[in-house]
Design a protein around this nucleic acid. Sequence first.
DNA 1: GAGTGGTCTAGACCACTGT
DNA 2: CAGTGGTCTAGACCACTCC
Lengths: 287, 287
Amino acid sequence: MAKYERIADTLRQCIRAGLFKPGDRLPTETALAKEHRASLPTVRDALAQLAEEGLIDKRHGIGNFVRESCRRIERTNERHQREKDQVREADTEHVATRSPEHDTGATASDGAFSSAYEEAEADEDLAVAFGVPLGTRLLKRIYRSCPQDEDEPFDLTESYLLHDLAAANPDLLDASHEPWPGGTQHQLHTIGIELDRIVERVTARPPTAREAEQLGLQKGVSLLVVRKTSIDVNGRVVEVAHTRLPGHRIELAFTTHLARRCDDQHLTESHRSAYARSTGNRYSMRQ
Amino acid sequence: MAKYERIADTLRQCIRAGLFKPGDRLPTETALAKEHRASLPTVRDALAQLAEEGLIDKRHGIGNFVRESCRRIERTNERHQREKDQVREADTEHVATRSPEHDTGATASDGAFSSAYEEAEADEDLAVAFGVPLGTRLLKRIYRSCPQDEDEPFDLTESYLLHDLAAANPDLLDASHEPWPGGTQHQLHTIGIELDRIVERVTARPPTAREAEQLGLQKGVSLLVVRKTSIDVNGRVVEVAHTRLPGHRIELAFTTHLARRCDDQHLTESHRSAYARSTGNRYSMRQ
DNA sequence: GAGTGGTCTAGACCACTGT
DNA sequence: CAGTGGTCTAGACCACTCC
């Protein structure tokens, strides 16, 4: 085992054992070097490893600090249904009463979020996603949300709508109308769009220098990248969004409901398959 | 901008421009150092960055190679429903005919997989997940699957079942009976368990040294960590699995079907909410 | 053995932060 | 300003791979 790994291990143990507590500053790098009879770069290799793991926070010109064990924020896919439900509530009753406290506790209710609106043209990627010609006008919106009562943003989203579609409601083209009750689904509702399903594609990679800066991340940590596609009841892609989240802070929860195994033998196999294909994961209403 | 970042940028451009093609060996590190009038560690910092991004493959004693742009493997949550369907097909018709080619193309059909079985005791984490006392006997199984016609494993899974439950079918305790048609759901079926839903929690972090070795990954790349909980029709947690996947190779796709906004106004709001809570994301059968 | 990347050193200088 | 981490250098030695 390499020396820098041994040093990293030692520090890890000290932190887990509570010898260094969250918020504490570690000894200076030169002090650690002397203590472990190692050179500075070697110590720095060790510290870089701890930073990647999210165990310490490197602050240029100040020191290396033990990370406050930040709570993991859960984001479940069931919020999509809740959001859809809220649209109708807002619609039928208290029109613009934003009720963010409706989903309490477990869910990441996106506290405050700033945003920026601009026009964009569909690049190849987006053109394919929307199924439109290259260069089609899009409305691009940038969101940055924070968990309640925190300072650092924890998510960075670029959302795209078809411009001509969004233009049906001029309010949608104007950033000053944020926030909307019920979020994007409500916005889409105002132009007569109802969502049928949402597909989220998740990958992970280290952040670029720019992303690390924007999200206040250490170099080398992992970024969760979610590409969300919203499809309306006519099978049309109406929104494509690209979200980047810090992997060590977020837990994406996806619940897949399975159809009850029905004991009616009158359905032939081919019928069943076709049915399954058309509906996907769902819950039998028969239960 | 730091020198090592400039060097990394230059190399990135060379690769993207096709000046270095996939499979090519880059100039030696000393050659790059001379070319960029930089020291060896500086060049190595640049190369480390490219390795984290999955752009190059560092091979000790041989050289640095441009990564074959490995195809991204998609894993959708709709495979859970397919797997459930297969159980029934296998049950009613061709009993043990494993038909992996049923899900063609897009899906990662887990080619070959080795496995190891052993007993384990529930630690705090697992005890909470299963809702059983600490120390309860569990059956621990380890899977490593490869995409079709590839050598490197791309996933590493630890699966846990309640031992006493699994013991109802002695075959489940024996590794030699792998592979099973229809996978774990079929295995559960043999002891009379039908799944209601699957919850997958996704996070990302850099791999440990051990994980990097086991999965053949470069240091510093991102790992997708999926914790899957399977819940049966009685609301009991019957399987907990922990899967680690290379973030740059995998794309996890989750489709959330939304209930149609029903225009029947006879449902009061409270009824609707209660209904939504009990069923989660689903598809209206009325459509 | 020759050539490659992996680790480590000792020391220099720069950039950032707080006083 | 002093103290901290960030970058870079020149060179040494080790570990791995292939011939």
